[in-house]
Simulated scan of single mutants.
Amino acid sequence: MTPRGRARPLRPPLKVALAAPVGELPRGAGLAYEPKFDGHRMVVFRTADGALLQARSGRIVTAAFPDLDEAARRLPVGTVLDGEVVVWHEGRTDFAAVQRRAAAAPARAPSLARRLPASYAAFDLLAEAGEDLRLLPYRERRARLVALLGPLGPPLQPVPMTQDAEEAAVWFDRLPAIGLEGLVVKRLDEPYRGGMRAWRKLRHTDAHDAVVVGFTGPAARPSALVLVLPDDDAPVVSAPLSPALRAQAGAALKAPGRVGEGTGTAVATGLGEVGYREVTPGLAAEVERVTTRHAVTTVLRLRIPAELS
């Protein structure tokens, strides 16, 4: 592949660039700062036949987002974007609403799109007119991204970016008020490195919201919850619940229709793939995710809708 190469159009599944966590705001020359949205990672492909929307896992989710599918068709053929899908509610991002959109069956997706319209915050341009841009420096990809999306307007829009560390620090202090997670920091001269943690991310807190999609163990006292986390659509199994959380989760699952008919498998740390029972949308949890040798997701508290409390 060359910076200007046209040998092969980019097609899914495409590995996305990732960010490594840091404990304080990186500073120095040649850095760019972007807000980190609390949503679902998505790569948008504008093809000759229409559009394809790919989740971080590689799964094609076009049917779940008909509004973004329609918007993506306004892009020139051969465009590939990397970004985040968010749903805004009362001035804040709503991750549970994004997950409802992502999990929607094709028959329900259009009605959900009308009730919970999605926005796409693009933070990288990977291809334009079929030209692979991944080896170009970020500063050039960013300039071309803004020039491409500026005339189109919402729901496709570039994320804000600043090269001023002091302005980024102000953003970081104000982010929680609108439900954003923190900042992503990139070098202006770096290429796009799919599958590598070349970027850096500073979260405002170690705790963030996740959507409950299932559970393991008995419904009356689940042993663990199966969660979908921001920035990833692959379900993960939490660490074992405390006795109090087991009781609280069991009480929430008693609601009529809360336990679904479906089953699935998800990754549990130290165990590999385990089976779980699905739950219907509505439950969320505040979690802490710690990565040492393995990533461990601990449920701190449940967020139970008023009608279930």
Rank of each mutant, 00 (worst) to 15 (best):
R8D: 11
R8W: 09
P9A: 01
V22S: 02
E24H: 14
R27W: 05
P35R: 03
V44N: 05
F45G: 03
D49Q: 15
L52V: 14
I60H: 12
A63H: 13
A63S: 15
F65Y: 14
F65L: 12
A71C: 13
R74C: 12
P76H: 10
V77T: 14
T79F: 07
V86T: 13
G91V: 04
F95K: 01
A96W: 01
A96Q: 08
Q99I: 14
A102G: 12
A104F: 00
P110D: 11
R114V: 11
R115H: 12
L116G: 06
L116W: 06
S119L: 15
Y120R: 08
D124V: 06
D124M: 07
L126K: 02
G130F: 01
D132C: 08
L136I: 01
R141N: 06
R141T: 01
A143P: 09
V146K: 08
L148V: 03
L148S: 04
L149W: 00
P154L: 07
P154A: 05
Q157W: 09
P158Q: 04
M161C: 13
Q163Y: 14
Q163W: 12
A168W: 00
A168Y: 00
V170L: 13
F172R: 09
F172I: 02
F172E: 10
R174E: 14
G182I: 00
L183M: 05
V184C: 09
V184A: 09
V185K: 08
L188N: 11
P191A: 12
A198T: 15
H204Y: 11
V212D: 01
V212Y: 00
V236Y: 00
S238Y: 01
P243M: 11
P243E: 07
R246V: 03
Q248W: 07
K254Y: 10
P256V: 11
R258P: 07
E261M: 11
G262D: 14
V267P: 02
L271R: 15
G272F: 03
E273Q: 15
V274C: 06
V274A: 09
G282I: 00
L283A: 05
E286N: 08
R289S: 11
A295R: 13
V296D: 01
V299A: 01
R303P: 05
S309W: 12
